[in-house]
Nucleic acid binder design. Structure first.
Lengths: 355, 355
DNA sequence: TTGTAAGCGTTATCAC
DNA sequence: GTGATAACGCTTACAA
């Protein structure tokens, strides 16, 4: 039920101290009407002047732009959204600021969306139960789409939240989902993880340990399953794995340390679901057991976060084509995307010295 | 001039594939009018029902809420903003996603603002010249305030951008500025750095090297100046320093390495303007000169980012009271802030093993 | 406590 | 190519 969702409202007027300056000639902010009057044209013409390919004479446009410049006019996107039913606003839902990869995504997403005319509403979702509420908040701003970046959510709740209000497009970025109401923009995780598994086999490692992240039902990575089944396919046995409840290096540190303490037959390689976990693993091995990569043990990650390239990690990892994926998101927003290839991106293995 | 600013507009209608479900009874999304009709009250009463302390009978409110629930109604914040001239939207301008401290700020800011009813527009400003354009974009969304997090900007351009459009409040977060049009919410940098300087002196270090960030004119930290003058005050000589063009560990790595190679009389402590620089410095010392903290050399930072606590850094640093500062921001937004204390926050020295 | 009417600044439609 | 007029969904008086 949507009963417990927290509605946003806009409160009553309050005193505004430290207001910024406004145009004194109009007593407020210039509107298209002001510009129209000054330029001696209709409001609609002013409007047209601000549209890239509207049918308007260059002379009219010049007049309008000159008047707009003098008045400091810029179109009000709020009013435009209200009238047009499109906001050029995208909500970004994110629940984990500790994972450097999410940040790379945010950075590219905000940058590229802005260059294409979309603004970004950043919504910090606290946990899976909070996602519907965040989605509702976004819908109240009439976002053109909501993009979930590895956000934990519950299909059932999502369904309710979606049905209740309009969220035009629900996009899962860098995650796969079978939910038919969502659009996934992601790598072919199976292919990627198979590449890694084959690399591990090819390098002659024999005793892998897999470190997995949260085992969610809704938007999972297929990385663990793929690696384990691929390994099983080749070596006819399933390697051990540990799973942590968040992509947090500290949790990985702890889990790996625990595993090594509990098992005397140490792995020769630790394969991690992503770099955040891999970095925690490397730290644990180094500071708890004095095992260093690559001499004593190997570690492999996924994502190629900036820290992966630093001297203390030199992490072998898999890089997703984030920029391409964001461009695909822009296509989705424009409605020009090829839906068939959206979850088929492929990246590349970046071989450093850790494995 | 504002001539080169890039105006946003909202383009013409396009086909919407993959649309989400809408309420079939109305053929679209429920409005306050629909709810009013269903509940048998006026639109205004519906409105009141969604305001926390409006004068409305509990019976009316219950009727309205029941109807709203059935129809899946939630107030449209776009229309509300347009009508009320307040958006409950805050723009967050950020230009550096590599600095972990910025991320801590983003996380707290988005979380706390949301819990107080404000949504966050995240604007990725590419560089100092881009800030006015970002500010304009924000103003076109009628944001209640723009918050700059350590964004590089040029006072002159800012002035023009502000004059041209309404940005009600321009807030500098974790930065000081003399610009009278801005509100600074920050630590008392002088007091903080004096604490650090006195600690360094007290621990008996004799030959500090200071690593500073970009030397901007508009929103500077007083850290370098404070440390150098404090040291001069005590030891009657000014220690050497290096400055890098961004708070990037890699740049710090390079600058520190260069300094150590160029000067044979090595420092006994490296004092850094923040943790990002400090981590780069530690890496450089370790991997270029095999100098480890704290035995061979000491390093001290500022910010207490999460990585500062990891085993490879164990960084002594200064923690700012981010959460308190964000609450102060909320007060500023509400108009209830005590403007006199906004740039007087004080944090605490976190002593670990690096110095 | 509740209802009515007039905006808010755009876009969409359709004439000219 | 250009201009009137009606939405868009809400808030803000003010009246009942």
């Amino acid at each position: 039920m949507a009963t417990d969702l927290c509605f946003r409202y806009i409160g009553s007027k309050e005193s505004h101290e430290t207001e910024m300056s406004m145009d004194p000639t109009t007593g407020g902010v210039a509107t298209a009407d002001d510009v129209a009057k000054r330029a001696g044209v209709s409001r609609w013409t002013v409007n047209r002047a601000f549209k890239p390919n509207a049918s308007i004479s260059t002379k009219s446009r010049a007049k309008v732009m000159a008047a707009a410049e003098e008045l400091g006019y810029a179109p009000d996107l709020l009013a435009a959204s209200l009238a047009s039913d499109r906001s050029n606003l995208v909500a970004l839902l994110i629940d984990d600021f500790a994972n450097p990869h999410k940040l790379q995504i945010i950075e590219q997403l905000t940058r590229i969306l802005r260059s294409h005319g979309w603004d970004t509403l950043l919504v910090n979702t606290l946990n899976a139960a909070d996602t519907p509420s965040a989605l509702l908040a976004a819908s109240q701003r009439r976002v053109d789409a909501a993009v979930l970046i590895g956000v934990q959510f519950n299909d059932q709740e999502l369904e309710t939240a979606l049905g209740a209000r309009r969220v035009r497009k629900l996009i899962l970025f860098a995650r796969q989902s079978e939910n038919p109401n969502t659009i996934s923009i992601c790598c072919d995780d199976k292919a990627a993880m198979t590449t890694i598994a084959d690399y591990v086999v090819g390098q002659g490692y024999k005793r892998p340990l897999f470190v997995a992240g949260p085992q969610t039902t809704s938007a999972h990575l297929l990385r663990k399953e793929t690696f384990l089944s691929r390994w099983h396919h080749i070596h006819t046995h399933q390697p051990p794995f540990v799973a942590v409840s968040a992509y947090d290096p500290q949790l990985s540190y702890q889990a790996v340390a625990d595993h090594f303490r509990a098992n005397s037959d140490h792995p020769d390689i630790v394969v991690c679901e992503n770099d955040a976990l891999a970095m925690g693993a490397i730290d644990a091995l180094r500071y708890e057991f004095n095992l260093n990569t690559p001499n004593d043990i190997a570690v492999i990650g996924f994502d190629d976060v900036p820290q992966a390239a630093t001297p203390q990690y030199q992490l072998t990892t898999y890089r997703q084509p984030i920029v391409e994926m964001v461009h695909a998101l822009v296509d989705v927003l424009k409605g020009t995307a090829d839906m068939a290839t959206l979850n088929q991106f492929s990246g590349q293995l970046v071989v450093r010295t850790s494995a």
